[in-house]
Design a binder for these strands. Structure first.
Lengths: 243, 243
DNA sequence: CGGACACTTGAATTCAGTCAATTCGCGTGG
DNA sequence: CCACGCGAATTGACTGAATTCAAGTGTCCG
């Protein structure tokens, strides 16, 4: 189930050098603070596509900063379906809980090979006490995640499939662009139709039909681990027509 | 739009006497801390059913503790639909944002007459600095709200209408029970079929049909501002069959 | 080149939405 | 106390969107 490989010290990246720093929850830290941060880092790991970072009901007892790769967070239902709650990218902070000894309410799985940093509960406590500015960061991150969840809930609950898809893809593309990806080119996209379907609350068969519709309309082509936008204004217009 | 009536000092309740204290974010405060809290309270208000506490896009610049009544939080879409994100009860903390000067991303409206306490941004800042335990409370509240939103997203996205309704009602009933309501009796329930429909992502007509189905099955009767559960085990079983 | 997995397609079905017309329940004012 | 009126709830007929099931076809990777 879990194939995380712990990296030896000499292969680990220092927090100060971490390329994801610009997006991470420690983005406001100075050099001294970063050193302290790094000393409290529990481990660095690599995950292969398909590996779980943690599963619903686990008590990971740690929170994670995704350095590289794509991770999906989701909840499973007893009817065999699942809802993807969010797709995480480099710099995203995963698995934090106000009480780190509680079981977590969702699963996190790598959909591409990933590199991940972890901080256990006591380390986080220590850091928050020593660097009060991290508390503010944490509140902001929680805020952003809450807004994202409310937005997702709203369009999943109330929008037709075509708009849901356009909104979801636009959202992903925006995050990739923030991370320096040229979204005018063909882009690596490790989500399957089924993943996207589970994110927007439709079946994979219907997802396929809607994807074909957007492709035939010359707007966006998304399959086989790649995405290519062919008509940006149209995609954006569709997405913006939701709210 | 907004008909809030500010209460004169002599009609205001002290924080120490507030009946919602058991559920509120200041539940761990001692007497001295409560006094400080009360001094930083900006105002107490009453709202009539239908009044907005704040609207999406507003910058309320304050957060609110609901003392009495029911409030719905929701987002509107450009197709005229809306998604109800949560239903708030006494003690619930509404409208907090890590940056209180930012516009808020959802609306809050009273669905019954309400009494509300407000704390403006600077007051909250002051309290958090003076009473670090409030930060922990705040993180816990955010955590609970995040879990609730993820859960809602999951069943709205993936469950059939009957289960969504059962889950939603069970959830509401649990909160009422926590607040001392006898849920074996007929209970006041100020949500219309349309409100419930908007909460679980279906139309009011379909809501009506599903409601009738549950009523005819002798499980629960929910209409005309009242709810009565007639078969608790069956309702619970339906709700639990979701996850 | 072969196998696995992802994607595609069609047909039949079902669940949910739309529109429009009543009916019901409750509060108001006579 | 009753008639009235309004919003909420209900109903029917119809439409449409999305699911299901099942059988392909395509693409990638070893």
């Amino acid at each position: 189930m879990k194939h995380t490989a712990k990296l030896p010290k000499e292969l680990q990246l220092s927090c100060a050098d971490c390329s994801t720093r610009r997006h991470a929850w420690f983005k406001h830290c100075n050099t001294k603070e970063l050193n302290d941060l790094q000393e409290h880092r529990t481990a660095q790991h690599t995950l292969k596509a398909g590996d779980y970072l943690f599963m619903e009901g686990d008590t990971p007892g740690a929170a994670f900063t995704l350095q590289e790769g794509w991770v999906i967070c989701f909840k499973s239902l007893s009817n065999g379906r699942r809802q993807i709650l969010s797709v995480a990218f480099s710099g995203d902070y995963l698995g934090y809980q106000s009480d780190m000894s509680q079981p977590i309410d969702y699963s996190a799985m790598a959909v591409s090979d990933c590199r991940i940093c972890s901080f256990n509960g006591p380390s986080i406590m220590h850091l928050l006490q020593k660097q009060p500015s991290l508390i503010q960061s944490l509140l902001e991150i929680q805020q952003q995640q809450a807004i994202a969840c409310r937005t997702r809930l709203t369009y999943v609950g109330q929008a037709p499939a075509k708009q849901k898809l356009a909104y979801f893809l636009t959202n992903i593309l925006a995050k990739l662009e923030q991370r320096g990806v040229d979204i005018r080119e063909t882009i690596d996209f490790p989500l399957t139709h089924e993943d996207v379907a589970d994110a927007i609350g439709i079946t994979s068969v219907h997802m396929c039909r809607v994807a074909i519709e957007l492709r035939r309309a010359g707007i966006v082509d998304c399959r086989h681990n790649h995405i290519r936008v062919t008509d940006f204004p149209a995609l954006k217009a569709l997405a913006q027509s939701v709210f």
